[in-house]
Design a binder for these strands. Structure first.
Length: 493
RNA sequence: GCCCCCAUCGUCUAGCGGCCCAGGACGAAGCCCUCUCAAGGCUUAAACAGCGGUUCGAGUCCGCUUGGGGGCACCA
């Protein structure tokens, strides 16, 4: 085999929202191209005008951009092999379809869909496999040409050999031999003049000099057809790699877009747009999907660059993978912990802002390190650190009462704590903790009781980042004010 | 129904004939650390689907069975 420069592609159809399946179908060819110093391209397969959704292409582009999967050639940026949108390549497919007709490898078919449907029903009734019955295969080529020129509606079908077999290859599975008799005279060019996938993708992959076709395993059954088409043109075949499908978390059945509601109620989604809104970061999502279908021996928390370094296309897995959202959480949290403070701060700032908090950068930079290791998603910053940006907090009275104590005793602790803290010239972590600990011992209480009251009073919540670091950031004045408020609440109980 | 693919802990996987009484990660359990919650550290439970071959030797190769998945459109 010659050592042509590696060219891979992600070729989605703009028929819906971008999901994790799409993302992985883009990731692997991207990793391969980068790993091999090759080129990665985006091609839009929009030949189905019935399922076409405006806006889907943009969502795809946004998704890739968000993930950091950058393409070298594509519909919006152009490139030497364009256009990269199949509807803009009509003439190319038309020409190629007729080329096959001339070569005797394809034929025009004038059958109506009604007739086709009738034939199919009959075949089904007779327990035969539904298949084109070959009615137009026998039409004289000149006669067919005349009817086409006369304006009759037609499609072009591949003329599948009746005998013999074909051996194709998938990188992960080895060679696969199929009897031609099991194959159909598939439609290559539709009556609307646009090609089907079987023609368009083969033509484009050849013309765009794609070396590795990485695609979903739903294409495996049509690989023999595709190989026939490629060989009919006399072209070299690219290396085919069929990715396993994603299964539902239960492992029962393919994960589909229709499962969105099911998964959403657990706070998850398979759509990139949703995931972004839920506070997942691209690094986490990428790491997660990368490892469903690809295994590394150890150190599985990786950035995109690290994936590029370690990627090996032979290491992909052929078996279906059940998705596991807990693992997504794990990777997301792990990558959040890997972010530099300024970076993380910049990412959570808009979340605070959108939630209505007034955020100043100085405080944010101090808060960020405190909450970093507690975040699973970026959105968690609200629960863990919202009180830093509030003037007052609103503690739950019951939570102000320490375990094992009553309201009066808790109030006493709060008052004493107030005195201690108020006596300090500055409320810093190092200044406040020793006297408070001394008080805990003298008072005969335990740290959980005293610090617990203080925590709820100062932060308004039972769970927070470390108490004294938090109070230092909140600031002396505000802490005392909140404590006073807590004392009042307790005294009224 | 027909065709194709897949098969290691609950899940994602490492393993490409001896290095495996099977390694890592998530999750689970326990312990440590500890002002809460996390993070972190340590430990434990947990798998080669079954049956036949091939071989001195099989998780690794072959076949069958079973289970799972995918596909059979003028959709991709």
């Amino acid at each position: 085999m010659t050592t042509k420069p590696v060219r891979t592609r992600f070729a989605p159809s703009p028929t819906g929202r971008m999901h994790i399946g799409n993302a992985r179908s883009a990731l692997y060819p991207f990793l391969l191209a980068r790993r091999m110093g090759g080129t990665f391209i985006l091609r839009i397969e929009d030949t189905d005008q019935k399922r076409y959704e405006p806006g889907a292409e943009q969502e795809l582009i946004n998704g890739l951009h968000w993930l950091g999967i950058h393409y070298d050639e594509g519909p919006d940026i152009g490139g030497p092999y364009g256009p990269y949108r199949q509807t803009e390549r009509r003439a190319i497919y038309h020409e190629h379809a007729w080329k096959l007709v001339e070569l005797g490898k394809a034929f025009p078919c004038f059958c109506t869909s009604e007739r086709l449907e009738k034939v199919r029903q009959e075949q089904l009734k007779n327990k035969q496999n539904p298949r084109y019955d070959g009615a137009c295969r026998v039409i004289d080529p000149d006669e067919a040409r005349r009817r086409v020129n006369a304006g009759e509606k037609y499609v072009i079908r591949f003329k599948m050999p009746k005998e013999g077999s074909i051996t194709t290859a998938d990188l992960l599975r080895g060679s696969i031999t199929t009897e031609n008799s099991a194959l159909d005279d598939s439609v290559l060019l539709k009556s609307d003049g646009l090609p089907t996938y079987h023609l368009a993708a083969m033509v484009d992959d050849h013309l765009m000099e794609i070396t590795h076709v990485i695609r979903g395993s739903e294409w495996l059954p049509s690989l023999p057809l595709h190989t026939h088409v490629i060989r009919a043109f006399g072209w070299d075949e690219p290396i085919f790699v069929h990715l396993s499908v994603f299964l539902k978390p239960s492992g029962k059945g393919k994960m589909s877009k229709r499962d969105r509601a099911e998964v959403m109620k657990d706070g998850y989604s398979i759509f990139l747009g949703d995931m972004q809104e839920l506070g997942y970061i691209p690094e986490g999502v990428l790491n997660w999907i990368a490892l469903m279908g690809w295994g590394v021996p150890e150190d599985d928390v990786m950035t995109l660059d690290q994936m590029v370094e370690r990627f090996d296309i032979d290491g992909l897995t052929a078996s279906p993978a059940a998705i596991n959202f807990q693992k997504l959480d794990h990777f997301n949290g792990a990558h959040i912990r890997l972010l530099r403070t300024e970076d993380l701060a910049a990412r959570i700032k808009p979340i605070y802002t959108q939630a209505g908090f007034r955020v100043d950068d100085g405080t944010l930079l101090k808060v960020t390190p405190l909450i970093r290791e507690r975040l699973v998603t970026l959105d968690d910053c609200l629960a863990f650190g919202g009180f830093f940006f509030l003037e007052d907090v609103d503690p739950n009275p019951q939570e102000l009462i320490a375990k094992g104590l009553d309201a009066g005793q808790s109030a006493e602790i709060a008052r004493k704590s107030y005195e201690i803290l108020a006596a300090l010239p500055e409320l810093t972590h190092s200044a406040a903790e020793p006297p408070m600990r001394a008080y805990v011992e003298q008072g005969g209480h335990n740290v959980n009781q005293v610090f617990g009251i203080l925590r709820v009073a100062a932060t308004g919540q039972k769970v927070s980042p470390p108490l004294f670091e938090s109070m230092e950031i909140i600031g002396r004045a505000k802490v005392l004010k909140r404590l006073k408020n807590a004392i009042e609440i307790l005294e009224k109980m």
